[in-house]
Amino acid sequence: MSISTDIRVTSFAESLTIQRRVVYALVLREILTRYGRHGLGFLWLFLEPMLFSVGVLAVWKLFHATHLVLPLAPFTLSGYATVLVWRNTIGRVIAAVEPNRALLHHRNVRVIDLFLARIILELGSTTTSFLVMYGALMALDLAPWPADLSAMLMGWGALSLLSASLALLVGPLATLNDSVERVWHVFSYLFLPASGAFFVVSALPMRLQSIALWVPTVHCVELLRQGIFGRAYHGHYDLGFVFTVCLAVLVPGLYLVRYVQSQVEGE
């Protein structure tokens, strides 16, 4: 039986099939290496971010004011879940190449596939845990049925796209230079208060509002919350701006991925 693994004769569609196959194989492999098959195994994929959210919710509940305009639980969850999306996606991509370098011996496994597999896995797990958590809050009567489901999903989708784009820029940079990882850690902490997760734009003073809207994640969180809480939330968002940022980081990002591919050394 002969299986062609030729690249010279592959069309774009065939290449796409190969890439899908490779990324799928990498995602499954990643789940196994990270979570193993013992005990709760791959359930940790969802439990990990969930536990985190529950912890944060509990802390907020303990220390926070009792009278709030917005229901506390869905506000906190929608904030914290968005942090997990960009922080985990970018954080995981930073160490995507080094431990997997040996796999590059298989010609169809490219650097971009290593990045994509981790991005997909991280977006998948944070999305699932958010949906499950939100469902649980609804069941406990702590959160409303989303006022505008499509807006909610669009906000989440825009955030996912933004995180993936940023990951494809930070990933190759971190592969080329180790200090990127350390800078990213510091930056991700400093960026936390500015990310939009823990404030409402319309409640900010005017001057701060215009500054906050320079941060692309803020737009995504605002749209997400508008979807949850409805028009009364007065979300400030501009998806055009978010997509422009995505494009602006994707273009150099993909060039860098290609550069990393040309530089990468097997083991």
Binding site: I18, A25, L28, T33, A102, H105, H106, E267
Partner: peptide
């Protein structure tokens, strides 16, 4: 790939997992 190269496999996975991975990557 360079034949009999053991470094192209993952130690924390089982032999079977590695076989599955190879098959998935090469579409077998």
């Amino acid at each position: 790939w360079p034949l009999a190269l053991s470094s192209a496999f993952q130690g924390s996975l089982t032999g079977l997992d590695n076989l599955h991975f190879i098959c998935r990557v090469y579409g077998r």
